[in-house]
Protein backbone atom coordinates (compact mmCIF):
# COMPACT_ATOMS: atom_id res chain seq x y z
CA UNK A 1 0.00 0.00 0.00
CA UNK A 2 3.02 2.31 -0.17
CA UNK A 3 1.86 3.28 -3.66
CA UNK A 4 -1.24 4.92 -2.16
CA UNK A 5 0.67 8.16 -1.58
CA UNK A 6 -0.46 9.97 -4.70
CA UNK A 7 0.93 13.43 -5.24
CA UNK A 8 -1.37 16.40 -4.99
CA UNK A 9 -2.23 18.06 -8.29
CA UNK A 10 -2.21 21.86 -8.06
CA UNK A 11 -5.44 23.81 -8.76
CA UNK A 12 -3.64 25.70 -11.53
CA UNK A 13 -3.25 22.53 -13.62
CA UNK A 14 -7.03 22.06 -13.65
CA UNK A 15 -7.64 25.67 -14.64
CA UNK A 16 -5.22 25.34 -17.57
CA UNK A 17 -6.85 22.09 -18.70
CA UNK A 18 -10.29 23.71 -18.50
CA UNK A 19 -9.12 26.66 -20.59
CA UNK A 20 -7.75 24.32 -23.28
CA UNK A 21 -11.01 22.32 -23.22
CA UNK A 22 -13.08 25.50 -23.63
CA UNK A 23 -10.86 26.67 -26.51
CA UNK A 24 -11.26 23.31 -28.25
CA UNK A 25 -15.05 23.52 -27.76
CA UNK A 26 -15.25 26.98 -29.34
CA UNK A 27 -12.92 25.92 -32.17
CA UNK A 28 -15.15 22.95 -32.96
CA UNK A 29 -18.28 25.16 -32.91
CA UNK A 30 -16.58 27.65 -35.26
CA UNK A 31 -15.15 25.03 -37.62
CA UNK A 32 -18.38 23.05 -37.95
CA UNK A 33 -20.36 26.19 -38.79
CA UNK A 34 -18.40 26.27 -42.07
CA UNK A 35 -19.73 23.73 -44.56
CA UNK A 36 -16.84 21.39 -45.32
CA UNK A 37 -18.73 18.19 -46.02
CA UNK A 38 -17.19 15.02 -44.62
CA UNK A 39 -14.23 17.04 -43.33
CA UNK A 40 -16.57 18.65 -40.77
CA UNK A 41 -17.33 15.27 -39.23
CA UNK A 42 -13.64 14.39 -39.11
CA UNK A 43 -12.60 17.68 -37.51
CA UNK A 44 -15.40 17.52 -34.93
CA UNK A 45 -14.56 13.96 -33.94
CA UNK A 46 -10.79 14.60 -33.79
CA UNK A 47 -11.37 17.61 -31.53
CA UNK A 48 -13.74 15.55 -29.36
CA UNK A 49 -11.08 12.84 -29.08
CA UNK A 50 -8.43 15.36 -27.99
CA UNK A 51 -10.88 16.72 -25.40
CA UNK A 52 -11.64 13.28 -24.03
CA UNK A 53 -7.92 12.50 -23.88
CA UNK A 54 -7.42 15.60 -21.72
CA UNK A 55 -10.36 14.71 -19.46
CA UNK A 56 -9.11 11.13 -19.06
CA UNK A 57 -5.49 12.02 -18.34
CA UNK A 58 -5.91 15.11 -16.14
CA UNK A 59 -9.43 15.23 -14.65
CA UNK A 60 -9.59 11.46 -14.26
CA UNK A 61 -5.96 11.35 -13.06
CA UNK A 62 -4.81 8.58 -15.42
CA UNK A 63 -1.53 10.46 -15.89
CA UNK A 64 -0.77 10.62 -12.19
CA UNK A 65 -2.37 7.47 -10.76
CA UNK A 66 -0.96 3.96 -10.77
CA UNK A 67 -0.34 2.60 -14.24
CA UNK A 68 -2.91 -0.19 -13.90
CA UNK A 69 -5.86 2.18 -14.56
CA UNK A 70 -4.29 3.65 -17.70
CA UNK A 71 -3.53 0.16 -19.02
CA UNK A 72 -7.13 -0.93 -18.42
CA UNK A 73 -8.58 2.15 -20.12
CA UNK A 74 -6.23 1.80 -23.11
CA UNK A 75 -7.30 -1.82 -23.53
CA UNK A 76 -10.98 -0.93 -23.41
CA UNK A 77 -10.52 1.96 -25.86
CA UNK A 78 -8.80 -0.44 -28.28
CA UNK A 79 -11.75 -2.83 -28.02
CA UNK A 80 -14.15 0.06 -28.64
CA UNK A 81 -12.18 1.15 -31.73
CA UNK A 82 -12.16 -2.43 -33.05
CA UNK A 83 -15.94 -2.74 -32.49
CA UNK A 84 -16.56 0.53 -34.37
CA UNK A 85 -14.23 -0.46 -37.23
CA UNK A 86 -15.77 -3.91 -37.67
CA UNK A 87 -19.29 -2.44 -37.66
CA UNK A 88 -18.39 0.11 -40.34
CA UNK A 89 -16.55 -2.46 -42.48
CA UNK A 90 -19.55 -4.74 -42.25
CA UNK A 91 -21.84 -1.88 -43.24
CA UNK A 92 -19.73 -0.73 -46.21
CA UNK A 93 -19.09 -4.16 -47.73
CA UNK A 94 -22.59 -5.50 -47.34
Amino acid sequence: MSQEKTHIIPYKTYVYVLLVLLCLTFISVAVTSIELGTLTVTVALVLASIKSFLVLSYFMHLRFDQKIYAIMVTGILLIIIIVILITFLDYYYR
Binding site: I8, I9, Y14, V15, V17, Y58, F59, H61
Partner: peptide, 8 residues
Protein backbone atom coordinates in the same frame (compact mmCIF):
# COMPACT_ATOMS: atom_id res chain seq x y z
CA UNK B 1 -13.02 20.93 -13.19
CA UNK B 2 -14.62 21.78 -9.83
CA UNK B 3 -15.08 18.12 -8.92
CA UNK B 4 -11.46 17.40 -9.92
CA UNK B 5 -10.34 20.33 -7.75
CA UNK B 6 -12.29 18.97 -4.79
CA UNK B 7 -9.89 16.00 -4.71
CA UNK B 8 -6.94 18.38 -4.42
Amino acid sequence: MTVAMSIT
